[in-house]
């Protein structure tokens, strides 16, 4: 479904050149929830933003479905982006528009007729459980509700792929869990391919089928999520997993003494 080959990206800050991504190769299967995990600054955000070319890669090739994303001109890219939904850490809803108008935005950009927009938006709001919030402005919503609007907006054009840029990172654990459940739900219902980046192992563990670990701008390892936990190979993966091991060991010691915390 998504093929990334030899993707590289550098930033110029003044006279210095910083390598954000170097020679990334990834293959993501249709219908998978694919997690990209890494510490801050590892390049995961740059990577996901290259997929819809919010960041222009320096070299490399990105194919999504039948479309070679890296070959598109501006106009073709705009059309292709309608089939690539995206959700964000800070939701990025428009405060000047109601929930309905926010979700309708991609459809009106695409020039769909009003009755179609109304029907479609209502269906999506029902899917994310916000039917009763149609005429509310975003400032009245909680973080979790805002992200639900973000998800409805990202899905309203029937995309093939959903990109999630740290979508749960500014939510509390309980809300995170409900958003992850929603993502799993739509993944199953719509057979949607989801690419998500995160720095939370929890997120990966809950929803992802396969994953890639990114380290200093390179893919350190890929595979199933089970493999990450059972046979972590990269430095990053071991560090993530060691945190879990640390607490498991600690708990077993405490339980061994028969004491509570």
């Amino acid at each position: 479904m998504i093929e990334v080959s030899n993707l590289s990206k550098t930033y110029k800050t003044g006279k210095e050149t910083v390598t954000a991504l170097s020679n990334i190769n990834l293959s993501i299967r249709k219908g998978d929830i694919f997690g990209i995990i890494g510490f801050s600054g590892a390049g995961k955000s740059t990577l996901i933003r290259c997929l819809n070319r919010l960041e222009e890669p320096d070299t490399g090739r990105i194919v999504i479905g039948d479309t070679v994303i890296t070959d598109l001109d501006d106009k073709e890219l705009r059309l292709a982006r309608r089939k690539i939904g995206m959700i964000f850490q800070h939701f990025n809803l428009l405060d000047s528009q109601t929930v309905f108008q926010n979700v309708a935005f991609p459809l009106s950009v695409a020039g769909h007729p009003k009755p179609y927009i109304r029907e479609k938006v209502r269906a999506l709001l029902a899917l994310v459980g916000l039917e009763d919030k149609e005429n509310v402005y975003p400032s009245m919503l909680s973080g979790g509700q805002k992200q639900r609007v973000g998800i409805a907006r990202a899905l309203v054009n029937d995309p093939d792929v959903l990109l999630s840029d740290e979508a749960t990172s500014s939510l509390d654990p309980q809300t995170t869990y409900s958003i992850l459940e929603l993502l799993q739900d739509i993944n199953a219902k719509l057979n949607l391919t989801i690419v998500l980046i995160t720095h939370e192992l929890d997120v990966l563990q809950h929803v992802c089928d396969r994953m890639a670990v990114i380290e200093y701008g390179s893919i350190a390892e890929t595979g199933t999520v089970d493999k990450l936990f059972l046979q972590p190979e990269s430095h990053t993966a071991r560090r993530f997993v060691s945190i879990i091991d640390y607490y498991r060991d600690k708990r077993s010691i405490i339980e061994g003494f028969g004491a509570g915390i």
């Binding site: 819809n52 982006r81 809803l93 935005f105 991609p106 950009v109 695409a110």
Partner: peptide, 21 residues
């Protein structure tokens, strides 16, 4: 916020749409 502009770009909005909407 640049995030809002980016979101609009990711939805396939033209620069013109981004300015006015």
């Amino acid at each position: 916020s640049s995030g809002k502009i980016e979101a609009a770009k990711a939805m396939g909005a033209t620069p013109w749409t981004i300015i006015f909407r």
